[in-house]
């Protein structure tokens, strides 16, 4: 395990490279999912309100 973490003496370079890549991909994932959730929630709210008001719930042309 220690050998693995040591990366043949290149730990100082290999782990930051993987860490930064991971953090970036995680950040993109987080932002994308949050955007998707919020957009879906906003749309559901509008459609619910429209249904209660008896208006058409068809998705309008965008």
């Amino acid at each position: 395990m220690a050998d693995f973490l040591n990366m043949g003496g290149f730990a100082l370079y290999v782990w930051p490279a993987y860490g930064l890549s991971l953090v970036s991909i995680a950040a993109i994932t987080f932002v994308t999912l949050r955007f998707r959730r919020r957009a879906a929630r906003d749309l559901a709210e509008r459609q619910m309100a429209a249904k209660q008001a008896g208006r058409s719930t068809d998705a309008p042309q965008i």
Binding site: T32, L33, F35, R36, R38, A39, A40, D42, L43, R46, Q47, A50, A59, P60, Q61, I62
Partner: peptide
């Protein structure tokens, strides 16, 4: 995923 969300955002704006 972002573009699916964008379609929803545009529907919200249209509504």
């Amino acid at each position: 995923t972002a573009l699916l969300a964008e379609v929803d955002v545009r529907r919200v704006k249209a509504l």
